[in-house]
Amino acid sequence: MFELKKFRKKSPWILHFNAGGCNGCDIEILACLAPKYDIERFGMINTGNPKQSDILLITGPVTKRTRERLVEVYNQMPEPKVVVCCGSCASTGGIFRGMYNIEGGVDQFIPVDVYVAGCACRPEQIIDGVVVALGILEEKTKEIEKTIKLANKPVVEEDGQVNRRNMPAELTYETTV
C-alpha cells in the first residue's frame, strides 16, 4: 500500500482558477509550467480536476459572477488543501478595488494560506509561494491525521438518558501517535 502522506509532498497537483483577473498572472503560471522555469521538478502537474488537486492557485480579484464558482471549486477539493493567491489583485483587490462589480480579495470568501505580491507576479515569485505552500500542506497533513477524542464525559440526566445538547462544543483535539 502506498504511504500517501509521504508522497503527497513529493507530487502536489495544482489547480488554477481565474477569479476575474487580467490574464497577466495566468500566463505567468503557464510560463512556470514551461521549460524555463519548470515547476514540474517539484512534482507539480497542472490538473483541471478539483477532486484530484492539493494546491489551488487563484489569480485576479473576485467578481460578482465568479464568487459562487470559486467557493464551489474550493469545496470540491479534498482535504488537506492549500490556497495560494497570485498577484496583488487576488490578495487585496489591487487596482480594481472599489469598482462596482468587484467583491475584493479572495480571502473574503475562502481561507488563504499564501499571498504572492506583484502586478503581475513573476514566475520566480510564484515558485517561491508554491514551495512555501508545500510546507503548509505537510503541516495540514499532520493536523488531519490527529484523532479526535471527547474531553468531557457525557452528562447523564436523572432518568439515565445521555444529554447530547452540548457535545459538539466539547470536542477537543488530542494527539495520539
Binding site: 485576479g60 467578481t63 469598482m99 462589480n101
Partner: peptide, 8 residues
C-alpha cells in the same frame, strides 16, 4: 464572468 467596471 470577468466584468469589473473599468469603463466606469
Amino acid at each position: 464572468y470577468v466584468h469589473r467596471g473599468i469603463e466606469n
